[in-house]
Write a protein that binds this DNA or RNA. Structure first.
Lengths: 332, 332
DNA sequence: CCTCGACTCTAGAACGTTCTAGTCGTGTCA
DNA sequence: TGACACGACTAGAACGTTCTAGAGTCGAGG
């Protein structure tokens, strides 16, 4: 069936009556072949349906122009990030090789796979493994962590300024006239501390420390729902929530208890997850600048590969606020 | 920095005072080494932090135990499918290599990347490229298409019985007491024809041909919203919708026009997308049996690689209905 | 007429594995 | 004692590329 061996450089060379090396030159678009033979070789290659073997190619030419990316199937906007990474990588002639984290395939496994593929650098989306492991990894090849801080000299970081994200959210609510603004926390999740601190700072900046209130939350819908029930005793006029998923859980409980959003209470999420755009949910939220982050992550990885001097190890991108239907002026 | 060359078999062999071949034997767990040396070599390998080079490994040992998977970042439950595929592949000792389709990276590019990696077979999730191209591809290596039919002898197919999915939806609604049931179509999208036909057949089976009504829809929220506005003139008591995304658009318009769901009208989606589980949306929907599909797709790919005789080229999996909050008995 | 450089091309050694075909002991059996 | 099977190990050739070094050819310049 598909047992006819794939064409190799040697096959093409034989068919075109030239040496293997010359075919290699032509395929790589390298200087050293006349226009005439170049055309002839290309024609033969096309006829034999020759496909270069990237394994052999990379094996021989040491440097692999290959970036390993670890992403998680559980995380909604990793998809958007992948899109950006592909764009950025293509632009500078690098290939991407992906390895997914799934509920039953952990980060260590995903990384190990990429190491065997000998990629030149690793881009990790929201890595959860301990800093120490990241550090030893970074001793071996350039590592760029996205969407979390890493206190480790060797590991590069590209992330959003989460503190600033909450400033934006609070500023927006204050501008609408809110004063009694609570924050639903993310618990042990990555960057939950930064967001909480951002909320605190923003409240103080507005002289609203008297209203400061942080309630326990978490990553999922359930966490948001629980927080909502806690808030119902003494509802604020607005809430900022750790992330969109949690915010939808919160929204649902609020509405079921007869509160109107944004009439009685305004809600701001975080992440601009795809579902927050649904007409049904229409959540005001803080968006990360995915395209910029992707571009910078790839650029940084390549800089490291090329052994460039890195000045700012940590790149922090400002987020932006996406105003949708869950925020409005407080009830008079 | 990270310039110290990675350890190779030769390094390990030298350090352990044995031949390269023997180290290879130990690393592959192949017979031909004593327990004592085996232990010693492994110890040395660990000390040198040896990582096998999959490129070289695959290059030499012709058969690559590598499955190429093309998925799309736009499609919500491709993530779930990936999870299943990883599980299935791991179970039988295959590796997965992923290539994503993004808004700016088409299927052809994604596939080309995998071909260069010399994977042994391709698994395509909901491929959109023309059948003819799939066929030529399948002439070169085993190709398994998931979630669509392909009228082509060489291409294997693993998909859900979409017709049956709509039977389930209609049966459920009829059991609740509905008779006036409309269907919102998917337009030109994959498997939209099967779903429409399933709806038609089911209605007739219940003797409800008089109520048969198919309105134009599509893939996105907008399409569902448009269909909803069309239905508002003469609302049925229940609707089956091409997919979940479209269903949420429809739900939103219905509710904004004061109709209660499921009080005034019941809605059934299709796909069990992650967002349909959100408390807010809580959509009754048809779920594909992702785990089974993934397992079968991998199994089929491997069968082809091993040159097995394939009896049923197309594997069709029954879906199941997930009853949530958007369906109930019709208003009396 | 000879030399030189530019250009086109080629032979053959890498890259890090796996695989084939051995070699060397050592113990068993006739 | 010799033949022989067996286990543990090794040398060296693959795999399909890229790369280095050099071999021809040809026209120009002295």
């Amino acid at each position: 069936m598909s047992s006819e061996r794939r064409a190799t450089l040697a096959d093409v060379a034989a068919a075109a009556g030239v040496s293997v090396a010359l075919v290699s030159i032509v395929m790589r678009d390298a200087p050293g072949a006349s226009a005439a033979t170049r055309a002839r070789v290309l024609e033969v290659a096309r006829r034999l349906d020759y496909q270069p073997d990237s394994r052999a190619r990379l094996l021989r030419s040491g440097q692999s122009r290959l970036l390993g990316v670890v992403f998680s199937v559980m995380h909604p906007f990793h998809d958007d990030l992948l899109t950006g990474l592909y764009d950025a990588a293509e632009k500078i002639g690098y290939e991407l090789t992906l390895s997914a984290v799934t509920p039953r395939r952990d980060e260590r496994t995903a990384i190990a796979g990429l190491l065997q593929d000998r990629c030149a650098a690793l881009v990790l989306l929201g890595p959860q493994i301990p800093t120490a492991e990241l550090a030893t990894l970074a001793g071996r090849l350039p590592v760029v962590a996205m969407m979390r801080t890493v206190r480790q000299r060797q590991v590069d970081v590209v992330r959003t300024d989460d503190g600033r994200g909450l400033h934006l959210a609070v500023d927006h609510l204050v501008a609408l006239g809110h004063r009694n603004i609570a924050h639903v926390d993310g618990g042990r999740w990555l960057s939950s501390a930064e967001r909480r601190q951002g909320y605190r700072d923003a409240m103080r900046r507005h002289g609203l420390q008297a209203y400061e209130r942080v309630v326990n939350g978490g990553y999922g819908e359930e966490d948001g729902a629980r927080a909502a029930r806690e808030l119902l005793d003494d509802p604020p006029t607005a809430v900022t929530v750790f992330n969109d998923l949690s915010a939808t859980g919160l929204l649902d409980v609020l509405r079921r208890h007869g509160l109107s959003v944004p009439g009685d209470i305004s809600v701001v999420g975080y992440d601009d997850s795809s579902f927050s755009r649904l007409a049904h949910i229409d959540l005001t939220t803080v968006a990360q600048d995915i395209e910029t982050m992707a571009t910078l992550a790839v650029a940084r990885a390549v800089e490291r590969i090329d052994g460039a001097q890195i000045v700012h190890r940590e790149v922090v991108i400002p987020p932006r606020l996406v105003v949708r239907g869950t925020t409005g002026p407080p009830a008079a």
